[in-house]
């Protein structure tokens, strides 16, 4: 079995905000409610779910861009959440992030060459000449012309900017990349270019990915394992063919059936109409999904189902699959 690169255990992050006037009340958003999963070295691990399910918060908490409330994140045996500032600087070279919006993820006033050289200068990764050479090599690697160095972000298209964002993440030589919806803002033809680029990098450098997406088709193509999130919790985890061919959790089934397929013979099935979708601010008691679940029973309305490992690497939190 492959080495475990990253282990996330009972990671929790609640946000609080004051809402309302003139009588403000404090609301708690349960963005991450004790999620656990593991990423193997060289693997692309998909984190899927709909908006507000906490998948982006998960990615950011793992990198400590958001400080989690509790839980453990272990990277190659080292507890990340316990690392001090100096150690964190070193660890940041190992774990990088690629963002969804290629327009917001680059400093508009920074030339590409500088933006790519800066991380290496800050971390002292080579002499100025070596860094120059490395910038050139990185541009070639992500498929951009060498003179891109002298240009500003606004001179590039969305797909090219995403390539720049990927090159920037690669500057410090990471082993794990958190890719937060990296192709969602792109057109279909550009999307496949970027996916192929990421796949190439995975193969060539043995990179591991946490691939956050709402698009099941993209995750199926890119990832080897997947965790499905609903309102701050993971409801199902498993290897790619298994989850798609035989989804266990009713929510996974609903996602799978609702996802459009470019084939008119396979009409997507809308879920039985379930009313207003609940939010992570005030998730329903019991199993969070019971308000939309066609199989919900009394126990689902009262008790959150325990996690159950149904096969090696395959787990689900649903009373239907309880022991």
């Amino acid at each position: 079995m492959a080495e475990i690169l990253l282990a996330v255990e009972r990671l929790k992050k609640f946000f609080t905000a004051k809402r309302g006037f003139p009588n403000p009340e404090t609301v708690t958003v349960r963005a991450l409610d004790e999620i656990s999963f593991m990423v193997k070295r060289g693997e692309a691990f998909g984190l899927v779910g709909e908006s507000g399910c906490g998948k982006s918060t998960a990615g950011r908490s793992i990198l400590r861009l958001v400080e989690p409330d509790s839980g453990r994140v272990t990277y190659a045996g080292e507890d990340i959440l316990a690392a001090d500032a100096a150690r964190m600087r070193v660890l940041r070279q190992k774990m990088q992030i690629v963002f969804q919006d290629p327009y917001a993820s680059l400093n508009p006033r920074r030339m590409i060459g500088k933006a790519l050289a800066e991380p290496m200068l800050v971390h002292g990764l080579g002499t100025p000449t070596e860094i120059e050479e490395r910038v050139e090599a990185l541009l070639a690697e992500v498929g951009l012309p060498p003179d891109s160095r002298w240009r500003f972000p606004h001179e590039f298209s969305g797909g090219q900017r995403q390539r720049i964002g990927i090159a920037r993440a690669l500057t410090v030589g990471p082993e794990l990349v958190v890719a937060d919806e990296p192709v969602s803002a792109l057109d279909v033809s550009i999307q496949s270019q970027i996916l192929l680029l990421l796949r190439g990098l995975q193969d060539k450098h043995g990179l591991s990915f946490i691939f956050i997406s709402h698009d099941l088709g993209v995750v199926r193509w890119f990832c080897q394992s997947i965790a499905v999130m609903y309102l701050g919790r993971i409801v199902e985890i498993g290897p790619i063919p298994g989850i798609f061919d035989e989804p266990l959790h009713p929510y996974t089934q609903m996602l799978r059936r609702s996802s459009p397929v470019p084939d008119p013979e396979i009409r997507i099935e809308p879920a039985r109409f379930g009313g207003e979708v609940p939010s992570a601010v005030n998730p329903p008691a019991g199993c969070h999904f019971h308000t939309r679940c066609p199989h919900a029973t009394d126990i689902c309305r009262q008790i959150y189902p325990a996690w159950r490992e149904v096969a090696p690497g395959r787990g689900v939190a649903c009373h239907l699959h309880g022991s």
Binding site: R92, Q93, M95, F99, S105, L106, P119
Partner: peptide
């Protein structure tokens, strides 16, 4: 709150550098 500042943090830049340079 822009992603590029978050990217700076992910790349391990110091706060002083982020404020002064970015």
């Amino acid at each position: 709150q822009r992603d590029y500042i978050e990217a700076c943090r992910a790349l391990g830049y110091s706060d002083l550098r982020i404020m002064a340079v970015h």
